[in-house]
């Protein structure tokens, strides 16, 4: 597993744990009304699990598993992917904080979506040429 894959998969695992913690908090607050604002956690919960966990895990594993190039660099333009990784996690953090503090239209949440868009563009550009026959 390449180094960046280990970072992405570990970040995905941490997102899984964090996302489940948010979900557990909301479910408990539904049972015992100790936090009347628990619904504000719904958007961060979805964001962390959908993009932090599922998307990041898929990209991390794809980076590892997809056919490599015969000549170096065998994984492709890895700097693009590292930049995508940092942008994705910065974006997720911005969306989580922004949407918790001020809802989905909060400037921080909007900035987070821009970071995420840039991240998925870079990751798609990085992975695109790796989608090929094994000996191609």
């Amino acid at each position: 597993m390449p180094v960046l894959s280990t970072w992405m998969v570990r970040a995905a695992l941490l997102s899984l744990g964090f996302g489940f913690a948010l979900g557990a908090w909301m479910l408990t607050a539904k049972a015992i009304p100790f936090d009347p604002t628990y619904r504000r956690l719904l958007a961060p919960h979805i964001e962390v699990l959908l993009f932090g966990w599922l998307l990041q895990l898929a990209v991390g594993v794809a980076l590892w598993i997809l056919p490599r190039f015969e000549k170096p660099p065998k994984y492709g333009r890895i700097r693009l992917a590292w930049t995508g990784f940092f942008l994705l996690n910065t974006g997720i953090a911005c969306v989580v904080i922004g949407s918790y503090v001020g809802g989905p239209s909060h400037p921080l949440a909007l900035a987070g979506h821009v970071f995420e868009l840039a991240a998925v563009l870079l990751l798609a550009i990085f992975l695109w040429p790796r989608v090929k026959p094994f000996m191609g």
Binding site: T6, V9, R10, L13, L14, F20, A21, L27, T28, A31
Partner: peptide, 28 residues
């Protein structure tokens, strides 16, 4: 309410259990 709380605890423990279980498997 107890069932929802029990469900939350079970899923939370399972989620962090997955993190602990798979963490050492994520390596070069």
């Amino acid at each position: 309410g107890w069932a929802l709380i029990a469900s939350a605890i079970c899923q939370l423990l399972a989620g962090w259990g997955v993190v602990i279980l798979l963490w050492p498997r994520v390596k070069e």
